[in-house]
Nucleic acid binder design. Sequence first.
DNA 1: AATTAACTTGCTCATATGAGCAAATCGTGC
DNA 2: GCACGATTTGCTCATATGAGCAAGTTAATT
Lengths: 312, 312
Amino acid sequence: MTIAEDTELLTVRIAELYYDEDKTQDEIGALLGVTRWKVGRLLTRAREHGIVRIEIVHPRARRLGVERELRERFGLKDAIVIPDADDLRSRVAQAAADYLASFRPVPRTLGISWGRTLDEVAAHLPQGWARGVTVVQINGGVSLNRRAGTASTTAVTIAEKANGQAVLLPSPAILERLETKRAIESDRTVASVIDKAAAASVYLYSAGVADASSVLVDSGYLTTGDVEELVRKGAVGDVVGRYIDANGNPVDPGLDERTVGLGLEQLRATETAIFVVAGEAKHDIARAVVTSGLCTVIVTDEATAAALLEEE
Amino acid sequence: MTIAEDTELLTVRIAELYYDEDKTQDEIGALLGVTRWKVGRLLTRAREHGIVRIEIVHPRARRLGVERELRERFGLKDAIVIPDADDLRSRVAQAAADYLASFRPVPRTLGISWGRTLDEVAAHLPQGWARGVTVVQINGGVSLNRRAGTASTTAVTIAEKANGQAVLLPSPAILERLETKRAIESDRTVASVIDKAAAASVYLYSAGVADASSVLVDSGYLTTGDVEELVRKGAVGDVVGRYIDANGNPVDPGLDERTVGLGLEQLRATETAIFVVAGEAKHDIARAVVTSGLCTVIVTDEATAAALLEEE
DNA sequence: AATTAACTTGCTCATATGAGCAAATCGTGC
DNA sequence: GCACGATTTGCTCATATGAGCAAGTTAATT
């Protein structure tokens, strides 16, 4: 319903007097010759029609309305959505750090994946965000060729800042032969870590895009050709080192079997799996994760949230 | 006073719940574990610190705060300031039209000057903005070379829309010889118009910049050289055909004497002189008009208002 | 012209909110 | 360590505001 021309002008004057001049609805009514009830009603309409725009301008601002929609639409336990801004990645990481730091009950064991996004989350956690949390890596990832420890520093940073300890998974992310994978998994050191990982009360992970920019390619576990092949099979991205299609299923069961770490089913079965994603490139993988129930909590930006919510 | 880091975060959450989620301060308090009074106080601070920004988005919006400052600073009877926007000229003209249409008591006689700005004001006046107003031209202006009647259409339009009549001043704006000016002024037709003009209850006029773009140059009354000379003498622009300096005094007494129409002193002495100005180029002339008491009401844009208010 | 149906208006009443104040808390300088 | 001023806190109370409702208006349809 549109507002009549003259009513609209009156509405604007009322809005100015109320919001800019801090006058009471009574005073405004007397001033403009209308009843205070009409003033109130027109103010309500002014807000509804966007004539009065109320905005919260702050780096830590969130979009609670969108969060609620996400929760309801996908049955999530929680959703954190930050408004669109320049440094999306960093803002979302900040929000994830805030969320983790205020999560109650404080997890005794926290299972994490690794990657650029997780690194940022770790960096944004405040010193002493918790007292005594064990941080376990949930997927393999000793870097093969780059600065060793990229994966482990994330876990160590998070643990240190919580005055807890990090439990690293001393294994490659993906092995070439299934037998090797079985062998390494049965190794006591590795097995105990995987057990701990499976017993974590909270998981925190991100996702990668299925293209040449993937950390798995970067780290030498896969070639660009491998990824192209996976995309041909329907891969939209990877979660804890496992490539999935739009339905959340592993695109290549053979590859999946050779991947060390928590399985997707285990992730789906957990109470709290916090999924952190930011950026246009990850809209597809985000949709796959959310619709296939891989997470119970999502931390993301408004554009990604909108993409998830749009159309059926 | 700055807000502490954690308080600030709390403030943002509160603002979101209050403004985006329409929760009551009580509910928010319960939710976040603070008293409702603290919630209220933090909301006040959020508004003060600009974390919550309330904006009125509308082509007819105004800046009441700035208007008050202008009134107080320059002792004006009224001031109308529109927010910065693209089509400043048109917006300001609209505002002037709105102001004139709602002016009470409705003037029996309205004295107007002419020019691009006044034309726009006339165009924005709604049909039937008043019933029976006599519109008198207050300065000469039969165009010498362009489409004749540019000046008169303004008056005619305004009068027609008010179901009143226009009284035109059938005289050039500036004459070459003082004797000719005296002669024309003593002509009965001209004299009666000037009398009517002097008796108007409300005046509406704009101002021109002292440069080659002036309508007086355009109309052939002055050459570019004349204007350059005037600028050298300190001219900042013209008001009702008369060039003034920064102090509001005629820059060239001789020229001023040869200009037909209401004198500046008469304008200064009137009850209601509405001055319409828009645009960066007119900041100087606007300042001259306002500080020298040539107007009692100003209609302008925010940038011009800011220029008037800055320093000193 | 008569009859609905859809709005709008003015109002009562319950609730939300801000002003103002005393008590508590926090810093700071001695 | 203590005393003093500055803030902050929790509160009472007066006021501002929105929900809900009945009466009045308007517009559309027959």
